[in-house]
Amino acid sequence: MRFTPLALEGVVLVAMDSHRDARGHFARSFCEEEFAAAGLPERWPQMNVSVNAKAGTLRGMHFQRPPFEEPKVVRCVRGAILDVVIDLRPASATFRAHLAVPLDAESGDALYVPPGFAHGFQALIDDSEVLYMMGARFEPGAQDGVRWDDPAFGISWPLPVSAISPRDAAYSDFAG
């Protein structure tokens, strides 16, 4: 695996080294020792999957409030998405900045999202599937989010929103 730090401190692109032959390809998607050597968590107590029927589906922007912040590794295993993170760490030099990273099943790349970030994505292709490794268990009372189109962040989504949950659509403007 290759670990490439991105523009927001702590966010890392995790690329697999694929071995291809006549059968297809094989790649390691997680290795405890390699993650540790890259300074990333090695413990992932929960794994989630999301299937998104229509291109334009938007999920996010989610986070868990302290002390239940959660790191994530997000990988698109079918189709393609635009994955977006927002730095919500008040002491960070990039506080309120966002980063958009295209992820698709063909590349197999994943995005490591550190604690203290809001996370969401938009499906770019029908039937896109996203696999999340979660570094903390979900804590229902700590779930929160910011509005996907809040002008404080200026995120440019590539497609019109075709589907969004009522909860995600109802988040208020960021007050921080």
Rank of each mutant, 00 (worst) to 15 (best):
A91T: 12
K54M: 11
V51A: 14
A37E: 08
G79D: 09
L40C: 10
V77G: 03
E34Q: 13
N52S: 14
W44Q: 05
A80V: 13
Q46E: 15
N48C: 08
E69G: 15
M47F: 10
G39T: 08
T57N: 04
F63L: 13
P41S: 09
A53D: 14
P41Y: 14
S92C: 03
A53I: 06
P66S: 15
F35D: 05
V85S: 08
P71F: 07
M47E: 13
S50E: 11
A93Q: 05
F68G: 07
F68C: 12
E42P: 03
P66Q: 15
S50T: 11
S50I: 12
C76H: 00
R43T: 15
N48I: 07
I86F: 07
A91S: 12
P41N: 09
T94R: 01
L58K: 05
G79N: 06
R89K: 07
L58P: 02
E69K: 14
S50H: 09
Q64L: 13
F63V: 05
P45I: 08
K54W: 04
D83I: 03
V85F: 03
R43H: 15
V74N: 04
A36V: 03
G79M: 11
W44N: 00
V74Q: 02
G79H: 02
P45S: 11
E70D: 06
N48M: 09
V77T: 14
T57M: 07
L40R: 05
R43Y: 15
F95H: 00
F95T: 00
P45M: 02
L88N: 01
N52E: 06
M61Q: 05
C76K: 06
F63A: 00
V49G: 11
Q64G: 07
V85P: 08
K54R: 13
I86Y: 06
M61N: 02
A80D: 04
F95Y: 10
P45V: 00
L58Q: 02
F63W: 15
R89D: 06
E34H: 06
F63H: 09
T94L: 04
F95E: 00
G79P: 05
A37M: 13
R78V: 12
R78A: 08
P41I: 11
T94D: 00
R59G: 00
P90A: 03
M47C: 14
P67M: 06
P66H: 15
I81D: 10
F35V: 05
R75N: 03
R78W: 07
V77R: 04
G56P: 01
V49T: 13
V51I: 11
